[in-house]
Nucleic acid binder design. Structure first.
Length: 262
DNA sequence: TACATATGATCAT
DNA sequence: TGATCCTATGTAA
């Protein structure tokens, strides 16, 4: 279930469970043996979420209290990646477990990530520089998203999935936010007016914050969504059947009446 | 047992 | 645009 809310929630949990501790790191599956060996036993300085990316920053080997970041573990869950949290040392990891981190009190297992790699600080900075503003971050600059939309060719529905435009939005939040703001997904991104953009940004901020708090994407009531994966079902607002179409290479769900072009 | 599916992204053509 | 990778789960055969 990985959109930005999931990632920020994981960062919060892993800060609580792992940050400031010396962590035993292994790769049960074997595909991250080298990285795990490098990090094993090191002090975890901090955990940060940016869009759909997780960054774990580690002190150099042998540093008990240092605050100089030596290496960064970069994790991106992709479509199917998942973290599981266990008390103590946890059960035997599933066969696909790429990464296991444990303090003895808490253990986390990571399976199926798109990315699990070590970065040097400059690589991490380069990666972050490619991302648009993350509505969940205090330092988010909505102006950067506005500017990106002005330069953009193509529909707003595609732009919302581009992580260099805005970071952390996936297929579910794009559909829900566009519906909530009554925006036609096919509207050219550069034709979005400023007032509507401001509402869209605020909608993304509030929807993602609810997601972090609840751990799920439920925008229209408990366990209920406006349009996402509701093809053929009635629109909550007008009763028209929700449609699914291909925008930006993924299925875009929308109400053809509530979100019709002006 | 096999296959379809999933809230993602990249690389090749 | 299409193929591909990653893993777990649910349904069909």
């Amino acid at each position: 279930m990985p959109e930005g809310h999931t990632i920020h929630r994981l960062a919060r949990d892993h800060r609580r469970d792992l940050e400031g501790r010396h962590v035993a790191v292994t790769s049960p599956q074997g595909r991250f043996d080298g990285g795990a060996a490098t990090l094993d036993g090191r002090l975890l300085l901090d955990v940060d979420a940016y869009g759909k990316h997780l960054f774990y920053r580690w002190a150099g080997p042998g540093h008990a209290t240092g605050d100089e970041v030596d290496r960064t573990l970069h994790v991106h869950l992709g479509l199917v990646g998942v973290f599981r949290r266990h008390r103590g040392t946890g059960p035997a990891p599933t066969p696909g477990t790429r990464l296991a981190m444990t303090t003895g009190a808490v253990t986390v297992h990571l399976a199926g990530p798109m990315t699990c790699e070590l970065l040097d600080p400059p690589d991490e900075q380069a990666l972050r520089a490619r991302l648009g503003p993350d509505p969940l971050r205090r330092d988010a600059a909505p102006e950067a998203m506005w500017a990106a939309l002005q330069r953009r060719r193509g529909p707003i529905g595609g732009a919302l999935l581009d992580q260099s435009v805005v970071a952390g939005i996936g297929n579910a939040y794009r559909a829900e936010a566009l519906f909530a703001c009554a925006i036609d997904p096919l509207l050219p991104a550069r034709e979005l007016d400023r007032a509507t953009f401001d509402r869209l940004w605020e909608t993304l901020v509030s929807m993602l914050r609810v997601g972090v708090r609840t751990g799920r994407i439920a925008t229209a009531g408990p366990d209920e969504r406006y349009v996402y994966r509701r093809t053929g079902e009635p629109c909550h607002r007008c009763g028209t059947a929700v449609t699914g179409s291909e925008v930006g290479g993924r299925t875009l769900y929308s109400c053809p009446v509530c979100q019709r072009g002006a």
